[in-house]
Design a protein around this nucleic acid. Structure first.
Lengths: 245, 245
DNA sequence: TTGTAAGCGTTATCAC
DNA sequence: GTGATAACGCTTACAA
């Protein structure tokens, strides 16, 4: 039904091999026949079947991106950045939401491999290392770090320091840090750096632990507000006592 | 390098045809040989090459999702919902950000088709209708509507009505509607329904136009706040005059 | 510079 | 019930 390389070959009056060579700029092909091929391609609006290509080359135009949850507001911009770059290069993104379950991540990796993805970008905490190493698929960690894997991530020390300096500059003398899981290196480093700066400036520090999910942040916020409310009630009592009412 | 159906066939002492049949529950295969095949699969940890499958069947496990911009907070949950369902069924999601450019959307569609996607889910405003109709690929519109295409979308009348009723119930007598582009059916309907209810209750209505992007909302909010500030300054002056200071 | 043909890993059509 | 084998659309030796 679809137009194949054969149709193009017939139209251009050459063999499929020549069409292929012209298409991929591979090996010699006379300028005139190249033109004839290109014309035929245009005329028929031929688009190579990427599946057939992939079967032969064992490559593809796909990259797999596995992240905890695209719904978490941190990830869409990550995904977008990746996608933009891939689009420009003619590649495409397959996404997987692991929900922090190793087995889900593992299934995604398998499925991606079965489709000849040429690489993986992973941004989860519970990484299926052994699977990755066995598969020998190029992998880079995004916003995560681990031994034996290339990773791209922000400078957490700098980030934590900047955040602390900024809040100090704004005049706060008592700050509460909503801290991510201490088992996650990135957030822990950020916390450490901020804590360090805050301490140096003798700021009163309050810590609230939170998961990295939206819901976790929400819960942390509620706990924070509750503690503030208590503190305010306490202050109020103090004031009332002062006023000797 | 990878394990193929041939390896399984050899291991199980049968032909590739039999392995294929066992794998796909196609045609007859004796219970004993089926077991032998399954054992071999387990032993070798064989995973079918989806690319080869796809080449033959002209199908795939891929669905293409094209949306304006995954970075827009509305879309991640959409994508997640789709992805969850696909995952459960063994399918996968390829995403494309169209940035509201028809040609970009068109390129994505081409690329997806070249990879034998079995369907498209589209959630953009500038839909490349003619391309879609020519391609004859099953597509469904998400949160958009158009003639000749199946679509899933929220009940906008109901939504607008609910929003209006809710805000009236909360006691507001003067509400400003931040309205999406009137050219987009979904948002326009929502606006209309809300407007209608508000009017019925003699609420004072103020309208601000906004694009559907995050940035657009931000700008609208700024415009809104600015107008409120002016109104407040006005109120203040009135009060001061009242007080005859 | 070009064409012929093998092969990528499957599935389906036929014989047996 | 099972096994050869052609075919899917492409790329790349190898010949010409």
């Amino acid at each position: 039904m679809s137009i194949t390389i054969k149709d193009v070959a017939k139209e251009a009056g050459v063999s499929v091999a020549t069409v292929s060579r012209a298409l991929n700029n591979n090996g010699y092909v006379h300028e005139d026949t190249r033109k004839a091929v290109m014309d035929a391609i245009q005329l028929l609006n031929y688009k190579p079947n990427e599946v057939a290509r992939s079967l032969f080359t064992k490559k593809s135009k796909f990259i797999g991106l596995v992240l905890p949850d695209i719904t978490n507001p941190f990830f869409p911009s990550l995904a977008r950045g990746v996608e933009d770059f891939l689009y420009a290069e003619g590649y495409h993104l397959i996404i997987g939401n692991s929900d922090k379950q190793q087995d889900k991540e593992s299934e995604y990796i398998d499925a991606f491999l079965q489709n000849n993805v040429i690489g993986l970008i992973i941004s989860t905490d519970e990484i299926a290392y052994n699977k990755l190493e066995k598969a020998k698929i190029p992998t880079v960690l995004l916003d995560r770090v681990a031994e034996n894997f290339p990773a791209v991530y922000a400078d957490q020390d700098e980030g934590g320091t900047l955040a602390a300096e900024r809040i100090i500059a704004s005049g706060c003398r008592c700050v509460t840090i909503v801290r991510g899981p201490i088992s996650v290196q990135t957030t822990y480093k950020r916390y450490k750096a901020a804590y360090h700066v805050l301490k140096q400036h003798q700021i009163e520090i309050n810590i609230i632990d939170s998961s990295l999910s939206f819901q976790g942040g929400q819960e942390a916020a509620i706990r924070l507000l509750r503690s503030i409310r208590i503190r305010m009630a306490f202050l109020l009592v103090m004031i009332l006592l002062q006023l000797r009412l």
